[in-house]
């Protein structure tokens, strides 16, 4: 399947979501429940991407100290929690992973 077709469809989906409530304003009311659900999307989606990358190696659970991505990820979580700074978080995680790979691999 072509990457072009995929991205055009993805672009349409993204645009429709962004324009949705702008066009529907006054025609429908956003229920509290829907609002709550939308609020929960970022934490749910982002952790569904983060966790497997940190805690799995070759599709096997890898919660041990030999797992560089888990260690570096934990470090990044700490930095993100304390500083809320994206650049600092990414830098810490990448430096952490690189050091880990240099030292233990």
């Amino acid at each position: 399947m072509s990457i072009w077709l995929t991205m055009v469809l993805a672009g349409i989906i993204t645009f429709v979501i962004r324009v949705s409530f702008v066009l529907l304003f006054g025609k429908i009311r956003v229920s509290t429940r829907l609002n709550q659900a939308l609020n929960l999307v970022p934490p749910a989606v982002f952790s569904a991407i983060i966790f497997p990358d940190m805690f799995l190696q070759n599709n096997q659970l890898a919660i041990h100290l030999n797992n560089g991505r888990m260690i570096a990820g934990m470090l990044a979580i700490l930095v993100a929690w304390r500083t809320r700074n994206i650049v600092l978080t990414v830098l810490t995680g990448m430096i952490g992973l690189t050091l880990f790979q240099m030292l233990f691999n």
Binding site: P43, F46, A80, R84, V90
Partner: peptide, 29 residues
């Protein structure tokens, strides 16, 4: 790995209340 790290940076500030923390933990697990 920068993808994962970026998402960590984006998700941490949103974990202020219990429902969001539960959504993050259950989603990840």
């Amino acid at each position: 790995f920068t993808l994962t790290l970026t998402f960590i940076a984006l998700v941490m500030p949103s974990l202020k209340r219990k429902p969001e923390i539960i959504a993050a933990l259950v989603g990840g697990i």
